[in-house]
Protein backbone atom coordinates (compact mmCIF):
# COMPACT_ATOMS: atom_id res chain seq x y z
CA UNK A 1 0.00 0.00 0.00
CA UNK A 2 2.73 2.39 0.95
CA UNK A 3 4.41 2.09 -2.41
CA UNK A 4 1.26 3.21 -4.15
CA UNK A 5 1.73 6.93 -3.56
CA UNK A 6 1.02 8.82 -6.70
CA UNK A 7 0.54 12.56 -6.40
CA UNK A 8 2.95 13.41 -3.59
CA UNK A 9 6.49 12.23 -3.55
CA UNK A 10 6.38 11.94 0.15
CA UNK A 11 6.93 8.45 1.35
CA UNK A 12 8.10 6.42 4.25
CA UNK A 13 11.53 7.62 5.22
CA UNK A 14 11.22 11.16 3.90
CA UNK A 15 11.67 13.80 6.62
CA UNK A 16 8.39 15.59 5.85
CA UNK A 17 6.46 12.34 6.10
CA UNK A 18 8.13 11.22 9.30
CA UNK A 19 7.71 14.51 11.07
CA UNK A 20 4.02 14.79 10.12
CA UNK A 21 3.55 11.28 11.31
CA UNK A 22 5.31 12.00 14.55
CA UNK A 23 3.18 15.06 15.26
CA UNK A 24 -0.07 13.21 14.48
CA UNK A 25 1.02 10.32 16.66
CA UNK A 26 1.88 12.68 19.49
CA UNK A 27 -1.59 14.23 19.29
CA UNK A 28 -3.07 10.74 19.48
CA UNK A 29 -0.96 9.80 22.48
CA UNK A 30 -2.07 13.01 24.19
CA UNK A 31 -5.66 12.03 23.50
CA UNK A 32 -5.04 8.82 25.41
CA UNK A 33 -3.44 10.87 28.16
CA UNK A 34 -6.62 12.95 28.34
CA UNK A 35 -8.58 9.77 28.96
CA UNK A 36 -6.75 8.74 32.09
CA UNK A 37 -5.91 12.09 33.71
CA UNK A 38 -7.68 12.38 37.01
CA UNK A 39 -7.08 16.02 37.90
CA UNK A 40 -8.91 18.86 36.22
CA UNK A 41 -5.82 21.04 35.83
CA UNK A 42 -3.82 18.12 34.40
CA UNK A 43 -6.58 17.54 31.84
CA UNK A 44 -6.42 21.18 30.78
CA UNK A 45 -2.63 21.05 30.54
CA UNK A 46 -2.76 17.92 28.43
CA UNK A 47 -5.23 19.64 26.17
CA UNK A 48 -2.96 22.68 25.85
CA UNK A 49 -0.09 20.39 24.94
CA UNK A 50 -2.24 18.68 22.31
CA UNK A 51 -3.24 22.04 20.85
CA UNK A 52 0.45 22.95 20.70
CA UNK A 53 1.24 19.75 18.83
CA UNK A 54 -1.64 20.41 16.41
CA UNK A 55 -0.31 23.94 15.85
CA UNK A 56 3.11 22.49 15.12
CA UNK A 57 1.59 19.97 12.74
CA UNK A 58 -0.25 22.78 10.93
CA UNK A 59 2.95 24.81 10.65
CA UNK A 60 4.88 21.81 9.39
CA UNK A 61 2.22 21.14 6.76
CA UNK A 62 2.38 24.80 5.77
CA UNK A 63 6.10 24.36 5.19
CA UNK A 64 5.77 21.04 3.33
CA UNK A 65 2.83 22.04 1.15
CA UNK A 66 4.17 25.57 0.70
CA UNK A 67 0.84 26.99 1.82
CA UNK A 68 1.34 30.20 3.81
CA UNK A 69 -2.25 30.22 5.02
CA UNK A 70 -1.56 27.12 7.09
CA UNK A 71 0.87 29.24 9.15
CA UNK A 72 -2.14 31.36 10.03
CA UNK A 73 -4.01 28.25 11.08
CA UNK A 74 -1.06 27.26 13.19
CA UNK A 75 -0.98 30.71 14.76
CA UNK A 76 -4.68 30.56 15.59
CA UNK A 77 -4.26 27.12 17.10
CA UNK A 78 -1.28 28.25 19.09
CA UNK A 79 -2.72 31.50 20.43
CA UNK A 80 -6.38 30.55 20.90
CA UNK A 81 -6.22 26.93 21.82
CA UNK A 82 -2.82 26.39 23.34
CA UNK A 83 -2.71 29.64 25.34
CA UNK A 84 -5.96 31.60 25.74
CA UNK A 85 -8.43 28.77 26.26
CA UNK A 86 -6.29 26.79 28.72
CA UNK A 87 -5.59 29.99 30.65
CA UNK A 88 -9.29 30.79 30.77
CA UNK A 89 -10.12 27.25 31.82
CA UNK A 90 -7.54 27.44 34.58
CA UNK A 91 -9.13 30.68 35.67
CA UNK A 92 -12.55 29.12 35.77
CA UNK A 93 -11.25 26.13 37.67
CA UNK A 94 -9.58 28.39 40.18
CA UNK A 95 -12.70 30.50 40.56
CA UNK A 96 -14.85 27.44 41.05
CA UNK A 97 -12.28 25.85 43.36
CA UNK A 98 -12.42 22.48 41.69
CA UNK A 99 -8.73 21.97 40.98
CA UNK A 100 -8.73 19.01 43.31
CA UNK A 101 -8.93 15.50 41.91
CA UNK A 102 -11.81 14.46 39.66
CA UNK A 103 -13.55 11.20 39.20
CA UNK A 104 -14.15 9.48 35.86
CA UNK A 105 -17.24 7.54 34.98
CA UNK A 106 -15.10 4.79 33.53
CA UNK A 107 -12.08 3.07 35.02
CA UNK A 108 -8.67 3.81 33.45
CA UNK A 109 -8.14 0.38 32.00
CA UNK A 110 -11.58 0.06 30.33
CA UNK A 111 -11.32 3.52 28.82
CA UNK A 112 -7.84 2.71 27.48
CA UNK A 113 -9.12 -0.56 26.01
CA UNK A 114 -12.09 1.13 24.39
CA UNK A 115 -9.75 3.82 23.09
CA UNK A 116 -7.50 1.24 21.45
CA UNK A 117 -10.54 -0.40 19.86
CA UNK A 118 -11.64 2.99 18.53
CA UNK A 119 -8.23 3.58 16.96
CA UNK A 120 -8.42 0.15 15.32
CA UNK A 121 -11.90 1.02 14.05
CA UNK A 122 -10.69 4.35 12.65
CA UNK A 123 -7.86 2.63 10.79
CA UNK A 124 -10.21 -0.05 9.45
CA UNK A 125 -12.57 2.63 8.20
CA UNK A 126 -10.15 5.14 6.75
CA UNK A 127 -7.52 2.97 5.08
CA UNK A 128 -9.88 0.98 2.81
CA UNK A 129 -12.11 3.97 1.96
CA UNK A 130 -9.27 6.26 0.79
CA UNK A 131 -7.41 3.89 -1.49
CA UNK A 132 -6.91 6.53 -4.18
CA UNK A 133 -5.37 9.18 -1.90
CA UNK A 134 -1.75 9.74 -0.92
CA UNK A 135 -0.30 7.65 1.88
CA UNK A 136 0.31 10.62 4.12
CA UNK A 137 -3.24 11.84 3.69
CA UNK A 138 -4.64 8.45 4.50
CA UNK A 139 -2.64 7.86 7.63
CA UNK A 140 -3.14 11.43 8.73
CA UNK A 141 -6.90 11.01 8.33
CA UNK A 142 -6.82 7.77 10.31
CA UNK A 143 -4.95 9.51 13.15
CA UNK A 144 -7.29 12.47 13.04
CA UNK A 145 -10.40 10.28 13.13
CA UNK A 146 -8.91 8.46 16.12
CA UNK A 147 -8.38 11.78 17.91
CA UNK A 148 -11.99 12.77 17.16
CA UNK A 149 -13.36 9.47 18.46
CA UNK A 150 -11.18 9.64 21.57
CA UNK A 151 -12.40 13.19 22.21
CA UNK A 152 -15.97 11.94 22.05
CA UNK A 153 -15.06 9.11 24.38
CA UNK A 154 -13.50 11.58 26.79
CA UNK A 155 -16.69 13.62 26.69
CA UNK A 156 -18.89 10.71 27.66
CA UNK A 157 -16.60 9.13 30.22
CA UNK A 158 -16.41 12.28 32.32
CA UNK A 159 -19.03 13.48 34.72
CA UNK A 160 -17.48 16.87 35.38
CA UNK A 161 -18.53 19.70 33.08
CA UNK A 162 -15.06 21.34 32.51
CA UNK A 163 -13.49 18.04 31.55
CA UNK A 164 -16.39 17.31 29.19
CA UNK A 165 -15.68 20.65 27.53
CA UNK A 166 -12.02 19.74 27.22
CA UNK A 167 -13.08 16.49 25.54
CA UNK A 168 -15.08 18.53 23.06
CA UNK A 169 -12.11 20.81 22.34
CA UNK A 170 -9.86 17.80 21.89
CA UNK A 171 -12.36 16.46 19.36
CA UNK A 172 -12.02 19.79 17.55
CA UNK A 173 -8.23 19.36 17.57
CA UNK A 174 -8.77 16.14 15.69
CA UNK A 175 -10.80 18.00 13.09
CA UNK A 176 -8.02 20.55 12.60
CA UNK A 177 -5.50 17.74 12.30
CA UNK A 178 -7.60 16.21 9.56
CA UNK A 179 -8.04 19.55 7.81
CA UNK A 180 -4.35 20.40 7.67
CA UNK A 181 -3.41 16.94 6.49
CA UNK A 182 -5.47 17.25 3.33
CA UNK A 183 -3.88 19.40 0.64
CA UNK A 184 -5.91 22.29 -0.69
CA UNK A 185 -8.28 22.60 2.24
CA UNK A 186 -9.67 26.14 2.11
CA UNK A 187 -8.84 28.63 4.83
CA UNK A 188 -12.46 29.43 5.54
CA UNK A 189 -13.01 26.17 7.30
CA UNK A 190 -10.12 26.77 9.62
CA UNK A 191 -11.30 30.18 10.66
CA UNK A 192 -14.85 29.02 11.16
CA UNK A 193 -13.79 26.05 13.26
CA UNK A 194 -11.61 28.25 15.39
CA UNK A 195 -14.46 30.68 15.76
CA UNK A 196 -16.80 27.83 16.64
CA UNK A 197 -14.51 26.77 19.43
CA UNK A 198 -14.49 30.27 20.89
CA UNK A 199 -18.28 30.44 20.75
CA UNK A 200 -18.61 27.01 22.28
CA UNK A 201 -16.14 28.08 24.93
CA UNK A 202 -18.27 31.07 25.84
CA UNK A 203 -21.42 29.03 25.84
CA UNK A 204 -19.92 26.35 28.01
CA UNK A 205 -18.50 28.98 30.32
CA UNK A 206 -21.93 30.46 30.82
CA UNK A 207 -23.26 26.94 31.20
CA UNK A 208 -20.86 26.22 34.09
CA UNK A 209 -21.99 29.21 36.02
CA UNK A 210 -25.63 28.42 35.44
CA UNK A 211 -25.11 24.91 36.71
CA UNK A 212 -23.22 26.11 39.76
CA UNK A 213 -25.72 28.84 40.47
CA UNK A 214 -28.56 26.36 40.33
CA UNK A 215 -27.04 23.32 41.91
CA UNK A 216 -23.98 24.49 43.82
CA UNK A 217 -21.89 21.88 42.01
CA UNK A 218 -20.49 21.20 38.60
CA UNK A 219 -21.26 17.52 38.77
CA UNK A 220 -23.51 16.76 35.80
CA UNK A 221 -25.08 13.93 37.74
CA UNK A 222 -27.02 16.71 39.46
CA UNK A 223 -28.49 17.52 36.05
CA UNK A 224 -29.72 13.94 35.81
CA UNK A 225 -31.50 14.45 39.08
CA UNK A 226 -33.20 17.56 37.71
CA UNK A 227 -34.47 15.80 34.61
CA UNK A 228 -35.57 12.77 36.50
CA UNK A 229 -37.53 14.70 39.08
CA UNK A 230 -40.73 15.46 37.12
CA UNK A 231 -41.30 11.84 36.16
Amino acid sequence: MRGATMTHHIGFGALSYDLAHLLGGTALVLSFALLYQRRVSAVVNTYALQALVVAAAAAWQGWVQNEPQLYLTALIALVAKAIIIPLALHGIIRRLEIHRSIETAFGVFPSMAVGVLLVVLAILVVLPTTLGAATLTREDLATALSVVLLGLLAMITRRNAPTQVVGFFSLENGLILAAVGVTGMPMVVELSTAFLVLVAFTVFGLFFFRIRDRLGSLDTRRLDLVTEEPR
Binding site: L121, T129, L149, T227
Partner: peptide
Protein backbone atom coordinates in the same frame (compact mmCIF):
# COMPACT_ATOMS: atom_id res chain seq x y z
CA UNK B 1 -32.22 11.28 28.74
CA UNK B 2 -29.41 13.30 30.27
CA UNK B 3 -26.88 15.09 28.10
CA UNK B 4 -24.27 12.48 28.77
CA UNK B 5 -26.59 9.62 27.85
CA UNK B 6 -27.68 11.36 24.66
CA UNK B 7 -24.01 11.85 23.77
CA UNK B 8 -23.40 8.19 24.54
CA UNK B 9 -26.25 7.15 22.24
CA UNK B 10 -24.93 9.39 19.47
CA UNK B 11 -21.44 8.04 20.01
CA UNK B 12 -22.70 4.46 19.89
CA UNK B 13 -24.58 5.16 16.66
CA UNK B 14 -21.48 6.80 15.14
CA UNK B 15 -19.28 3.86 16.13
CA UNK B 16 -21.86 1.43 14.75
CA UNK B 17 -21.97 3.37 11.50
CA UNK B 18 -18.18 3.32 11.20
CA UNK B 19 -18.13 -0.37 12.04
CA UNK B 20 -20.64 -1.06 9.28
CA UNK B 21 -18.52 0.92 6.83
CA UNK B 22 -15.42 -0.98 7.91
Amino acid sequence: LTIRRILTVMFAVLVLFLAVIA
